[in-house]
């Protein structure tokens, strides 16, 4: 279609672009895992199937909402929009949302972008809260282990003494879910020990 020199140039540019996308995904996540601050998010897994990516468990988080002390601007915070959430550890050492913003917080803070999944407020004073979907609500497992993981979690749910949380590294606005811990043990090991 093109002469050899142009073909070579376009081919090289294409190869670079095709390496850049997955490559930058890897580097960004590795940097987040290496340099980021680790937070524990209390969670609840289930087991759907994604035809593109094998099997994973979907996590739901306890601390996925933020209550405003002031009036909510429902035009600014509407369903499906992205917002910056700032995270800090509470007294029991679990992650909590401590601030919601429309602009990027300071680089020193632990923050990431989350999707607004619910806006609730009182009509009279418009005070209320936001519920979020976090960008790390999937944990991929070896396909034979995902159903076992679901079974294990079901058992743990009925036990009020057990503790399940997702371990998330946060760095410069990126968040990477590195593990799911059930009673102090990685879910992968817990499934193997079943």
């Amino acid at each position: 279609m093109f002469d050899r020199k142009i073909t070579l140039l376009i081919f090289a540019a294409m190869v670079l672009a095709q390496w850049y996308v997955p490559g930058s995904m890897i580097l960004q996540r590795e940097a987040t895992i290496d340099k980021g601050q680790a937070f524990k998010f209390k969670c609840q897994p289930i087991d759907p199937i994604d035809p593109f990516r094998g099997k994973y468990i979907t996590l739901g988080f306890d601390a996925d909402n933020y209550s405003f002390n002031s009036t909510i601007d429902d035009q600014l915070w509407s369903y499906g929009h992205l917002a910056y959430v700032t995270i800090k550890n509470d007294e029991s050492d679990f992650a909590r949302i401590t601030g919601v913003s429309n602009t990027k917080p300071d680089a020193g803070a632990a923050f990431f972008q989350a999707t607004i999944r619910g806006v609730s407020y009182i009509e009279t004073d418009k005070k209320g809260s936001l519920t979020f979907e976090f960008p790390f609500n999937r944990f991929y497992m070896e396909e034979s282990k995902a159903p076992l993981a679901e079974q294990l979690y079901g058992e743990q749910l009925s036990d009020s003494t057990s503790l399940v949380y997702g371990l998330v590294s946060i760095y410069k606005g990126n968040a990477v879910l590195t593990d799911v811990i059930i009673n102090g043990q990685s879910i992968k090991e817990a499934v193997e020990n079943m």
């Binding site: 997955p22 990516r53 960008p135 999937r138 991929y140």
Partner: peptide, 16 residues
């Protein structure tokens, strides 16, 4: 292969 590489990296790093 391009689709697979992006998809698989997403899987490895649990990116929804």
């Amino acid at each position: 292969a391009v689709g697979a590489s992006i998809s698989l990296i997403s899987q490895i790093y649990n990116i929804p």
